[in-house]
Design a protein around this nucleic acid. Structure first.
Lengths: 169, 169
DNA sequence: CTCAATAACTTAGTATTCTAAGCATAAGCC
DNA sequence: GGCTTATGCTTAGAATACTAAGTTATTGAG
């Protein structure tokens, strides 16, 4: 294991062999393959991969604000704004304001969007099953657990915000 | 384990709890966190996350064609074209044609881009180290191996291309 | 109570990536 | 040789996501 305190430059050859094993690279390929395969199914219901991510959260928690939705889905607000415009246009959500706090916009699924869950949720399960073919339950759980640990590590570090400044210097 | 032959719709409640454990979701968050953290470093050298992916491959294998580069990096050709335009403009690569096959364009790193490896490659190693903090070598290897198995599963299925047609029906 | 700070959302502009469709060159078949 | 197909690159247009900066509404400090 590389020690974090070791900041001395090493010859690049040391990094060459690691590149294909990079967690960043591997997770990018997994994400993209997964997403493409799922979208092949959801598009048959006129739902894009981007829209799917918001619908998925709303099935679990209808009537939350845009900000809450952004946080849950892991997107920034401008992304949410654009996505919701599309969803509203497609007749999948409605947006409501209240007098209690006139800054907030609450998002509600339309009946059609609620019905879509019955078709789309199994598609996700199906792709997940394909992705984990030939793996035992224990292996799948370990993969999930390791990914969550990586996420925790990275989000802790992102919070600190000053990680690479000593390399830059 | 869900059996692949089981196509009957189940009540959506069965999928609710699984969504946060979705390999697709987890890998998306890992990829994005990793990428943002790395970009914070590479941008100090005026290299974007997208450009980094191409440079990384060229450090290993200089003078390949655009098509070869696309394949190695895992991007489609139009993506490569756009990325290379940026890299050329930034003075990081040159493009050369030969008479042997006038369709092909060969990509070469400039001296400046070669030097950048000494600064950028350690940044990747650094982020990788942060991502895997608190994990043993064996755990990191298992994560890599499990991700590769998922990639294999998904790319096999993508090749088959007809996966979700029975759900759609 | 007033003014500054914060919060929620929006807009504008950019980057990355894709699919679909096109152009030029090369290879293969009769 | 000439036509068809394949290969390599490009263009066009769209989707997804970001940062930075703006608007409006609420909160909170003095």
């Amino acid at each position: 294991m590389l020690a974090k305190k070791n900041k001395a430059y090493r010859h690049p050859a040391e990094y060459y062999t690691d590149l294909e094993n990079s967690i960043g690279y591997l997770s990018r390929i997994v994400f993209r393959s997964f997403s493409r395969l799922l979208e092949r199914g959801t598009l048959t219901q006129d739902v894009s991969a981007g829209q799917w991510r918001f619908l998925r959260q709303l099935w679990r928690e209808d009537g939350i604000t845009q900000r809450e939705l952004s946080e849950r889905v892991g997107m920034r607000e401008p992304t949410t704004v654009v996505a919701l415009k599309g969803l509203e246009k497609a007749g999948l959500i409605t947006r409501t304001k209240t007098d209690a706090d006139r800054r907030k916009t609450f998002i509600y699924l339309t009946p059609h969007a609620k019905k879509l869950e019955l078709v789309l949720a199994p598609m996700n399960a199906e792709v997940h099953e394909i992705a984990t073919q030939g793996m035992t339950d224990a292996e799948v759980e370990q993969l999930q657990s390791l990914l969550r640990r990586v996420i925790d590590n990275l989000s802790d570090e992102t919070r600190k915000l000053s990680v690479l400044s000593d390399i830059k210097a």
